[in-house]
Write a protein that binds this DNA or RNA. Sequence first.
DNA 1: TAACTGTTATACTATAACTATAACAGTTAG
DNA 2: CTAACTGTTATAGTTATAGTATAACAGTTA
Lengths: 129, 129
Amino acid sequence: MFIKLDFESSEPIYQQLVFRIMEGIAMKELKPGDDLPSVRSLASDIGINLHTVNKAYHQLKQEGFIQIHRQKGVVINPDGVPKADEQYKERLKKNLHPLITESICRDLGEEEFIKLCQTIYETYQGGRT
Amino acid sequence: MFIKLDFESSEPIYQQLVFRIMEGIAMKELKPGDDLPSVRSLASDIGINLHTVNKAYHQLKQEGFIQIHRQKGVVINPDGVPKADEQYKERLKKNLHPLITESICRDLGEEEFIKLCQTIYETYQGGRT
DNA sequence: TAACTGTTATACTATAACTATAACAGTTAG
DNA sequence: CTAACTGTTATAGTTATAGTATAACAGTTA
């Protein structure tokens, strides 16, 4: 696990950690059933407190990405990550809305906005490099 | 100005206010040169402190959306809102990235993601109702 | 003159993020 | 059996952000 966090960012580091792990899954570097580091070892690797790692793990657990086993450890959900349901799509819409609002204000057209999204999607083409 | 804020949301209300005003601009309800309410009157309308409104106004000013005149008032930038430059697109990418990462994890394809964006873009078709 | 504008200053509360440290109860490898 | 490991819980503290309350200042405008 090579994880780089931005300690200067206003985005909480536990939140950054959540997304780094999601990136691992999206890149197919992390597959269902794979072990994740213990809260202590990951915390010490990154140089943060174990409770901060724990907070990230619990958010991932609540969204169904991982399973936490009390005195054993943490694994990527062996049954795979939960699919996008209506609830997720609603949340996604809510998050996209302000981005699109500002883009329209700034005269960034739908086509260019979509191109931008496609560029990001391409980042994940083919999985791990 | 009919502005509805969600006081239960974890999103700061000054940030919500920023986006409500951006929505007004995107919907063409607010046009270049239009007056905005004074910090006191808007604060009292919404039921919040004038400093909170002030904070929102200053963020909008820093991004070039509005002009603040010391002892006169606040207007939508008469020269129009600044266009999307490279710096904005970079910021937009950074904000889109985690949304797309999670969508890929959840097996939400590019096509469906784009459809969702288009749905939101359509909201603004034709401007004010 | 009176009512208005944004600005500045001080002071306070509440909450979220993060850290530090310790202890507990099971698991597992040697 | 023991020692090292797992996540969990609890307590306590710091820091920064968000928000409120109140007051005063200086220039604008009707």
